[in-house]
Design a protein around this nucleic acid. Structure first.
Length: 289
DNA sequence: CACTTGACCTGTCCGC
DNA sequence: TGCGGACAGGTCAAGT
């Protein structure tokens, strides 16, 4: 599911909804989804107050007054949905059949607050996870040491962006964009959207790209991600924000999941191929090898 | 090291 | 209507 814009949308929602709340109880039915739940929940989660919500790449970091943090990775189908009394999951979506009560069969973790509200971690495919660990240790985890820079930071330049690819010259640009250690937060949707914007074919070898090519990719990565955050992210299927509502970026997508439709720039028919093991969408006229 | 592929899971869709 | 296979927004652990 969620790439940087979706995780950032969830982060902003949670910031408004749960900061300052005190945890009353927490349950998990699936050890894979919350591995250290049994031993640490009672000691470091229950009774703690939510202090703030940060994001690094696609990872959410919820810091607690106990000195511990809750780390959440949504992977492909994870959702964090806050439910106040009386609010139903999916409410507000045009398709009424999506509206139902939580928890449901994809609920893996439920964290309840002392005001009666609950935060649900739902994850159909069980790839995502929640982990509790001391806040002071967070910067030392492998993820933090390996992950690349945040592409939307104001001081992140086109030259720095291009430099990050120096290590990945023998592969294609799509695989390199998806590599979280190069630049953080880009996933399958925004890789395709940005490469279309930059007129670059996803199978172009990194070594063949010019400074000018990198600058166009840099500009488009930032443009599509900023637009998506503004639109509340992309909802292909599972993604919803912290209030259970879908994002609308897919209404603005130019190539992603638009195979068979017209390229909005030249009118040619958009094609789907497989690059770096992922479904990949291109305009065969605008993007040539 | 850099690179590729398959695995992790559940659900849905598409062709027979 | 049923069944098998491909595929789905992301990482990992293996292999070369």
């Amino acid at each position: 599911m969620p790439e940087l814009p979706e995780v950032e949308t969830v982060r902003r929602g949670l910031e408004a909804l749960i900061v300052g709340k005190k945890v009353a109880s927490a349950t998990s039915d699936n050890p894979k989804s919350f591995p250290n739940a049994p031993q640490d929940v009672a000691s470091f989660l229950v009774g703690a107050t939510i202090q703030d919500i940060h994001r690094r790449a696609k990872l959410l970091l919820v810091s607690l007054s106990s000195g511990y943090s809750l780390l959440v990775h949504l992977k492909m189908t994870g959702q964090l949905v806050y439910v106040d009394s009386g609010v139903r999951f999916g409410a507000g979506h045009p398709n009424d059949s999506l509206v139902h009560e939580l928890p449901d069969r994809s609920t893996r973790v439920a964290i309840s607050f002392d005001d009666g509200s609950t935060l649900y971690f739902n994850d159909q495919r069980k790839f995502g996870w929640v982990r509790l660990m001391p806040t002071i240790e967070v910067p030392n985890i492998d993820f933090m040491k390996k992950v690349g820079p945040e592409p939307l930071e104001a001081d992140f330049t086109a030259a720095q962006f291009a430099q990050r690819f120096a290590r990945r010259t023998r592969t294609n640009i799509k695989a390199a964009l998806l590599d979280q250690s190069v630049v953080a937060g880009i996933g399958n949707i925004y890789a395709d959207e940005a490469l279309w914007g930059a007129h670059i074919h996803p199978q172009r070898l990194v070594a063949s790209l010019s400074e000018d090519d990198f600058e166009r990719i840099y500009i488009d990565v930032r443009a599509v991600m900023n637009l998506s955050i503004e639109k509340g992210g992309s909802s292909n299927k599972n993604y919803v924000n912290a209030e259970g509502k879908k994002g609308s970026y897919m209404d603005f997508a130019r190539v992603f999941r638009r195979e068979g439709l017209a390229c909005p720039r030249c009118g040619a028919t958009i094609e789907k191929l497989r690059v770096a093991g992922r479904g990949t969408h291109i305009c065969p006229v605008c993007q040539t090898i």
